[in-house]
């Protein structure tokens, strides 16, 4: 493959990538707005699963369609500006970011829903999150620091990220979007996104982005801020449903943590193993990962 071809493929891939990101942004925004108006499960599925499908499936299906990998994978790798092995690591890191985000959000929701149940008060039904500083601080921690820490861990732990601007941009895009998802104002999303990307490129570290995005999240401490109660709170309209949705939210969180761990395993295996039975092993763990993914899907559908 000539350098010119690779360059063209990278440009084409980048266009495809950014189109995809814009579509995901649209999904997210639509979901946020619909959730604000008490939407149904379908929108939640779109909001959470569409990004997972777009980001995860190329990697998950790669070993399954092994015969065609020579045709498609170089193009996919070119999209992210890395070679085959590095490309898998990048995508797995992205998966970790997304799964980490889901885990953090739903663990937070589960804790608060169960708190509602055991305290016998619908503390979130009247927008009380803005009046309870500890709730907002917990939300800031779960929504901001935990997913970002997961991303940072893999950013630092994988050599493939070093000097890969496309991968950085990808990470930089994913993280602020997930962090700012609940802020129902695209203006703030853009501001935080731009600031986070700028900080990431300038410092070559995720930490400043984490600080920026988490700071915006913690601004919700002040009354009148644009806080949208997340998924389970919208559904937990009574004490009785708080218990049901609290447990389900914790289940989603646990499944997402499991998926994160499997992503971590896949990444480690990719780095450590050479040839031999690697692809068979990959296939097994990808199947396990898909199983986790299906559990998430089932729980979200049940919600």
């Amino acid at each position: 493959m000539s350098s010119l071809t690779v360059k063209n493929e990278r440009q084409e891939g980048l266009r495809f990538l950014f189109c995809g990101i814009m579509i995901l942004l649209a999904f997210w925004q639509a979901a946020a707005k619909r959730l604000w108006a008490q939407s149904g499960t379908a929108v939640i599925l779109l909001a959470v699963l569409a990004p997972l499908v777009c980001l995860y499936l190329p990697v998950a299906l790669y070993p399954v369609f092994n015969a065609k990998k020579q045709k498609y994978f170089p193009r996919l790798a070119a999209v992210y500006g890395v070679n085959k092995t590095e490309g898998k690591s990048v995508l797995l890191a992205v998966c970790i970011g997304v799964f980490g985000w889901i885990a953090a959000v739903y663990l937070y929701e589960g804790i608060i829903c169960l708190y509602q149940y055991f305290s016998n008060s619908l503390i979130l039904s009247v927008g009380a999150t803005t009046e309870k500083w500890w709730l907002t601080a917990l939300m800031g921690l779960c929504y901001g620091a935990l997913p970002a820490a997961a991303t940072e861990l893999f950013y630092r732990g994988n050599a493939c990220f070093k000097g890969q601007s496309t991968a950085e941009l990808l990470l930089a895009f994913i993280m602020p979007i997930t962090l700012c998802f609940e802020l129902n104002a695209i203006g703030i999303n853009v501001i935080v996104g731009v600031l986070s990307v700028a900080a990431l490129i300038k410092t070559r570290s995720v930490i400043p982005s984490v600080v920026i995005a988490s700071s915006f999240r913690l601004l919700n401490i002040f009354p009148g801020s644009m806080l949208i109660p997340p998924f389970s709170f919208r559904l937990a309209t009574s004490i009785e449903t708080s218990l049901v949705f609290g447990l389900r939210a914790l289940a989603i969180g646990a499944a997402a943590i499991g998926a994160t761990v499997i992503c971590f395993m896949l990444m480690k295996k990719g780095e450590a193993e050479g040839a031999g039975n690697k692809e068979r092993s990959d296939f097994f763990w990808h199947a396990v990962l898909i199983a986790f993914y299906l559990v998430l899907w089932a729980v979200l559908t049940a919600l």
Partner: peptide, 30 residues
Amino acid sequence: MKRLTKTAIIFAVVTVLLLGASFAAEAVER
């Protein structure tokens, strides 16, 4: 790697238990 496998299995079990508990709580209230 074994530790990670154990962790993944533990979280799978926790997921199943929590799901079971949520469906049981729903059935009781219903």
